[in-house]
Design a protein around this nucleic acid. Structure first.
Lengths: 299, 299
DNA sequence: CATCCGCGGTCCACATCATGGATCCGACTT
DNA sequence: AAGTCGGATCCATGATGTGGACCGCGGATG
């Protein structure tokens, strides 16, 4: 249960060309089936996965996501996808543009507004920092946030150089431990929490990231605790190296991290420390901004 | 099918005190069960209703929505609500704050961001206009948007006077025709479309708004087409009068509207025309802004 | 012009999956 | 200690979502 997606590998192969350009959707499609059956909420999870997929695809393609593409990437039968999309449309979370493509709807926008009031302000505050980082380093800067035992790419700003890194797009979900930002967050955990997190996701690691060595990750976390930043030497995606620092805010539990990703040549030697320095500086800025902001808006 | 909520009226009575303060949630709870069974997507709709509910409640209550309240308002059994919320949490759309309350999660924020790229820019552009309107009139200004045969309150700004109108909150959904903004949108329809819309929602009107006369609404729409604005003399909520104007943007089909609501005394005589004037002015501003914006961001 | 193919949409028998009443547990109040 | 309230869990039941197969269209192709 969970490898049913394999039966659709052929379909996916056919459109590999398209997917290469957008590993984002690919990742999302593969971060879908957590929380196995028996929990009584599979349809919800599938539907929300679709919603995320629509969001990502349509944010790249100006006139919406065609059904066929959603079907191919999600790996679910066309009829099911169609039915779910209709449900999402009925609820206003998805709309169809004139040309028939699917895109996010008004309700999604509204949810976003509501979410910004109640959820973590780090996403807001991080914007200028990410822009600065992307500008200064000419690489790609990310804000990663934790949710439960997962981490999500919450924001991303590209530098102006040739774009090297498209291994992670806004909205991508990976289990905690996958990605420099994710690892940076985990440096804030206790050893017990780290172990618990990896244990919780052990099956997903085995299924989805068989090439990743958990002990290796734990080692990186340990070193990160000491150094104040983590360094991922291309462990997760071919040629995608990255540095991440945690974002500490007051006494809050759920955490965030900033990271920068680039190719190997730009992620070695002295530059590692320069980048770490930059990241830490911005992380402090954001933390302060969040602190003062949350002090005011008690309305 | 659809009146099952009635069995929970007693529960609701108990917390009427709380609900009075927040008719928003009330409205949402009642805009839930559209698209009857047989469509194969009830669980999705229910789950998304919950999501909206969490959004609205938690946007008002700083430390999240307690399960019991969500249960009471949604009118669904506790176990079901609990299970669905867990699914939403697993997907990152909902989070729990320290005190145990439910609030919107990181994914919801991200969806919002993605949505703003692909969906209607009117919501963005309207902000300053709504602020001006609220400031100038000291009443409450709304942006209403259409989705399918529904209209949604997409934005709301309160004036500084004593707050008279809490009949409509951000995120509230009503069938097209309920509310001044909604009616303003319908002035852009052809007669056939107006009829079709009311027909599509006829059962919902009968169930949920038995006191509303559809012919009366059609009359208001007709007059609105002539005047360029619609005037709702407290038809939907006791003492809540309103004026709305449609928002025309280029050749787009889905539409939006601006409206102002207040008490009867402030919605009669010459002031009606002053307000209509103001609204039309802002509507034009927004339309222009949207036009020029959509011209640029073709990336 | 006939044909094929990709794409979006629909149907419906089947069994998986969500359902919700009952129950339990811990925290807080009287 | 007994009572109350909010949250979490269990599990038999059938309503509900599922997805393979089919349809119709429009645009390329030979």
């Amino acid at each position: 249960m969970g490898n049913e997606a394999q039966t659709h590998d052929l379909d996916r192969m056919k459109m590999r060309g398209r997917i290469m350009r957008r590993s984002a959707s690919f990742n999302v499609a593969h971060a879908v089936d957590d929380l196995g059956p028996g929990t009584g909420a599979q349809s919800i999870q599938r539907a929300l996965s679709l919603l995320g997929l629509v969001g990502i695809i349509s944010s790249e393609n100006p006139n919406g996501a065609p059904l066929s593409e959603i079907v191919a990437i999600s790996g679910r039968p066309k009829a099911s996808v169609h039915r779910m999309l209709n449900a999402l449309i009925a609820m206003g979370y998805v709309e169809r543009c004139e040309d028939g493509g699917y895109r996010l709807g008004v309700q999604s926008q509204i949810m976003g507004q509501l979410a910004q009031k109640s959820a973590d302000p780090a996403i807001e505050e991080s914007e200028s920092s990410l822009l600065r980082l992307a500008e200064l380093t000419q690489d790609t800067a990310f804000l990663t946030m934790r949710t439960g035992s997962y981490s999500i790419c919450a924001r991303r700003e590209d530098g102006f150089g040739p774009i090297f890194n498209n291994a992670l797009a806004v909205g991508d979900r990976h289990p905690l431990g996958i990605g420099a930002g994710s690892l940076a967050i985990m440096t804030q955990f206790s050893d017990a929490e780290v172990d618990a997190s990896f244990d919780a996701n052990s099956r997903i690691f085995a299924d989805r990231y068989p090439e990743v060595s958990v002990p290796r990750l734990k080692e990186i976390i340990r070193r990160g605790r000491h150094d104040g930043f983590v360094h991922n030497p291309g462990l997760f995606a071919q040629g995608s190296w990255a540095i991440g620092v945690p974002l500490r805010v007051k006494g809050r539990k759920p955490r965030a991290a900033l990271s920068i990703a680039s190719i190997e040549e730009r992620m070695t030697g002295a530059r590692v420390f320069e980048l770490a320095e930059l990241l830490q500086h911005e992380a402090r800025q954001i933390a302060e901004a969040v602190n003062s902001a949350s002090g005011e808006d008690q309305t």
